[in-house]
Nucleic acid binder design. Structure first.
Length: 506
RNA sequence: GGCGCAUUGGUGUAGUUGGUUAACACGCUGCCCUCUCAAGGCAGAGAUCACGGGUUCGAGUCCCGUAUGCGCUACCA
């Protein structure tokens, strides 16, 4: 039997990282077992579903490299099938028409309503399954339906017994029928409800393993009952631990904003492979404890048995730009940036430089080698792709900003620099060939002659050439920027020193 | 209210059938390297394994209870 798994998000917002993780795990399992990974958009809630959201889900999966097999299934297209199945269950006496008028429910207070009703029922001693229409005669039910009286369709749960299923993560599960109410299959307006739709679609798509969030764990019993009523084979289930916010509360869009959206990571310069790697470690760990894993390794190591039962905490600090998302995610991204083949990094940097208007077509041709060398040099201390256009701007453009702190620390501190740096420029100009080695020799010799520490000139040069106080080895920077730009930038310091002199006069 | 699930240093995790110093990664601190910052190397701080009982010669590992968190309990998905 070939494994068939699916990712079934509802398109009611952007792709949440929890959902992305579910998609990943399904995909990994399919790859691992040589099975099929299918995508089904659960768009039965017409009010809340949007095309934009569907697009963001597909984009997000594409970004993560989660290719799906076969055509996308849109659940809304199957509504007729769902209805037909429900009516068939009525005929078989496995479901019944409930003519109770529909009660209006307020989304914001449902949970409270449930608790209140449960309490009242418990005090009154009534069974929450008692429904006057459950045992209505078929003739009467048919007749009332024929007159056009609206009804919901409910599954008839047996009075006595228990449901069982084996969860591949949480182990054997059991639930007494008395805990399960006669769930509504079809709304009184004929609209099929979630539990019915998933089960029928999963049967239709011949899903063998249902891998989804733990929030569905207890509802699974209802679905098992439905499979049985429909006479279908019950698939295997694997429920994934939830992903929680730093305060161990629910990770929600409303409370936490864009940090939970997958597209945020794409837009803020994450490497897909790095984020995928990070996501895989949320609720799962390879047997050998190795954490940096290529897709191939991920696929090879993945197993449902190693998924944990306890929820994973996604750690980030709100309102802190430095720690805007999980530190480990950031670290992992940096790790990928600095260790992946620079040729593989190039296209991603290209996209970033393009959007920042720093890209030049020569980078694809004559200057390609220079670009690769430059990326390799500067990537060592970058965390996201954004850094290439941010901190790395001076390598791609003459129009870059000077950091105030760097100017103060490396330039204004020593007035001699306003003579020394142009002097150094003259010597560098006369250096031929101009490489990291020759530039170093020139600088050190010049420092000796001027009786200053090389560090003074090195740090001053760094700020003049890149606007920053930190960066790669200075001599490498000289070579990368080339003689012309190095010399120009060393001589362009006038504004800084003018300002300093003016300050001194006052 | 009921039912279910979870609980190992700040975070992510390892701890196969109970066996002695609770392991790894991120983060943090210090040192080395050094032209800065990283990276890298080395060293270190940080956990009475939620709490309380019990079983046992011995429990993070098994049992019971409590607490906390989360989920479900909808004519939402």
């Amino acid at each position: 039997m070939t494994v068939r798994v699916r990712f079934a998000p509802s398109p009611t917002g952007y792709l949440h990282i929890g959902a992305a993780r579910s998609a990943l795990f399904n995909w990994l399992y399919a790859q691992k077992t040589g099975g099929k990974f299918l995508l089904r958009i659960e768009d039965t809630d017409l009010q809340r579903s949007t095309d934009e959201s569907t697009r963001s889900i597909i984009d997000g999966m594409k970004w993560l490299g989660l290719d799906y097999d076969e055509e996308i299934v849109f659940q809304s297209a199957n509504a007729d099938k769902h209805r037909t199945a429900a009516y068939k269950l009525i005929d078989e006496d496995k479901a019944y028409r409930d003519f109770t008028p529909k009660a209006d429910r307020d989304d914001s207070t449902v949970k409270q309503g449930i608790a209140d009703r449960a309490r009242a029922q418990s005090e009154a001693g009534t069974d929450h399954r008692s429904n006057p229409f459950r045992d209505l005669s078929k003739a009467e039910s048919d007749q009332r339906a024929a007159t056009g009286e609206p009804f919901a369709v409910r599954l008839k749960i047996a009075r006595m017994g228990k449901t069982h299923f084996q969860d591949l993560v949480f182990g054997p599960q059991e639930r007494d029928y008395s805990e399960i109410e006669d769930l509504v299959l079809l709304r009184s307006d004929g609209h099929p409800l979630y539990n019915l739709s998933v089960v029928i679609d999963d049967i239709e798509m011949a899903i063998t393993h249902v891998i989804r969030g733990q929030d569905h764990l207890t509802n699974t019993h209802k679905q098992v009952l439905l499979y049985e009523a429909l006479g279908a084979t019950v698939p295997l289930f694997a429920h994934l631990p939830l992903i929680l916010a730093p305060n161990k509360g629910k990770l929600s869009k409303r409370k936490h904003g864009e940090v939970v959206s997958l597209t945020t990571y794409r837009d803020r310069g994450f490497i897909p492979a790095a984020f995928r790697n990070f996501l895989a470690l949320l609720g799962w760990a390879p047997a050998d404890g190795k954490e940096i894993l290529s897709v191939e390794e991920l696929v090879q190591q993945f197993s449902l048995e190693h998924i944990h039962r306890s929820p994973a905490v996604f750690n980030f600090q709100e309102n802190d730009p430095r720690h805007w998302t999980d530190e480990k995610a950031l670290w992992m991204n940096a790790e990928y940036i600095r260790t992946m083949p620079v040729e593989a990094l190039l296209p991603m940097v290209k996209t970033e430089l393009r959007s920042s208007k720093l890209w030049r077509d020569e980078y694809d041709e004559d200057d390609r080698d220079w670009l690769l060398k430059t990326l390799d040099l500067i990537r060592q201390r970058f965390f996201t792709l954004k850094d290439f256009s941010g901190q790395g701007r001076a390598y791609f453009s003459d129009d870059f900003d000077f950091e105030e702190a760097a100017v103060n620390k490396n330039l204004r501190k020593d007035p001699r620099l306003q003579e020394l740096l142009p002097g150094l420029a003259d010597h560098l100009e006369a250096t031929d060939p101009f490489t990291a080695e020759t530039a170093e020799a020139t600088l050190r010799k010049f420092a000796e002659g001027a009786d200053v520490k090389a560090g003074l000139l090195i740090n001053g040069s760094r700020t003049m050439l890149t606007g920053q106080a930190v960066g790669p080895s200075m001599f490498e920077v000289f070579e990368i920027l080339g003689k012309k730009r190095s010399v120009e930038r060393l001589r362009s310091g006038v504004p800084w020193f003018d300002a300093m002199n003016a300050l001194g006069d006052v």
